[in-house]
Design a protein around this nucleic acid. Structure first.
Lengths: 199, 199
DNA sequence: AGCACAAGCGGAACGGTATTCCGTTTATAC
DNA sequence: GTATAAACGGAATACCGTTCCGCTTGTGCT
């Protein structure tokens, strides 16, 4: 009989067979693309095909459709949050902040389809807002702190408020000139700069 | 050949055959119940069965699913708005206001499933918020005016703000003690009373 | 009352999707 | 190399939306 795993962890993921691991990743990638193109109600077959697996495999990894949606959402939130550190290392404080805000609004715009699912009342999505907030708010707080420390923007701006404001700004993004969001964001960042050095 | 209708209107509705009229009403009633129990994505067959008609009849009256949803929504909005006049005639001003607010939060809580559909981006639902506002805001304004005129609450409260506040209050209603909304509403009404006669 | 006719009706039929199930394949430990 | 269980694929099943058309029924007329 096969012994229990000797190495409960391999690489960095939980103990799963290598092919299963690959398929999980392929599915997440495929689902991201398909959701973006056809919405979260896209046929499961389409996702399976794009990932190069059978439908059975989709259900093995994500028994509920909501499991797949949640996984994609969390992955995207993580990517957006992680981008903060990368940008902070690469650009001066306020430019990093500005670029991240733009990145964030792209995330929000791209996930408009998911947003409807989140508010559907399905309890499976209940923990997502907390996850979203827990990852994104600290990321933005870090960027804000750096810009404040550099004396480039004023202190006292709550990260949560700024996130909400950015979300509001990209609300009409789909029936307005595409650079509208970008210009509004510019205004928002300029607003943060206002009064630097004033007490 | 059958002549064109002599009496273009009969009773109070548009010129339709009596059975068609009955079926439309039965469908609205059934859809209301089914939507409440199983959400707006409930099977059409289920609604048809509950109304005692065939599925073909559903599609005859409501070619698009969204037509049925919109009709149910408007009917409920109307019922809620009309309740204002009934309550105003039956209770003293502030009690009528209080009771109506409770009635309104019940409406919002019951329509959480519909709310998701409203934000789905389907253009069929686009005119609904305006309808909602156009019916409910005047209803609430009337109740507020009466309470103000009676000197029971202070003036200057915008009906729209109060509606929004009430909606926010019942947001967490589904994972909190059921009387939570009621208590919060009590606070809200008390807040309106504050400062009467001041100035 | 009886008739003619179109509006209205019911539900079978069609096309498509989600979900399950199980025989086959494959990664892993020894 | 081999045994074993995890994982896979896709056919099969179960639903659901939507259409279509022969049948029923309300209505206005005589």
């Amino acid at each position: 009989m096969p012994k229990p795993r000797e190495h409960p962890e391999e690489g960095s993921k939980s103990s799963k067979r290598a092919d299963a691991q690959r398929n999980t990743e392929a599915l997440l990638k495929a689902a991201l693309a398909v959701f973006a193109k056809s919405g979260v109600d896209a046929p499961v077959r389409e996702i399976a095909q794009k990932a190069g697996v059978g439908v059975g495999t989709v259900y093995r990894h994500f028994p509920q459709r909501s499991d797949l949606i949640v996984a994609v959402f969390r992955q995207e939130v993580d990517a957006c949050a992680d981008a903060a550190a990368v940008l902070a290392a690469k650009y001066p404080p306020t430019e990093a902040l500005s670029r991240w805000m733009l990145r964030f609004t792209e995330f929000v715009a791209a996930k408009r389809g998911l947003a409807a699912a989140l508010h559907s009342g399905d309890p499976a999505y209940e923990p997502l807002p907390a996850y979203y907030d827990g990852r994104l708010r600290p990321a933005l707080a870090m960027l804000l702190d750096r810009a404040v420390a550099a004396g480039e923007i004023r202190a006292g701006v709550a990260p949560g408020d700024l996130l909400s404001a950015a979300v509001s700004l990209c609300r009409p993004a789909y029936d307005v000139a595409p650079d509208h969001t970008q210009r509004m964001l510019g205004l928002l960042i300029d607003g943060l700069r206002y009064g630097v050095g004033a007490r």
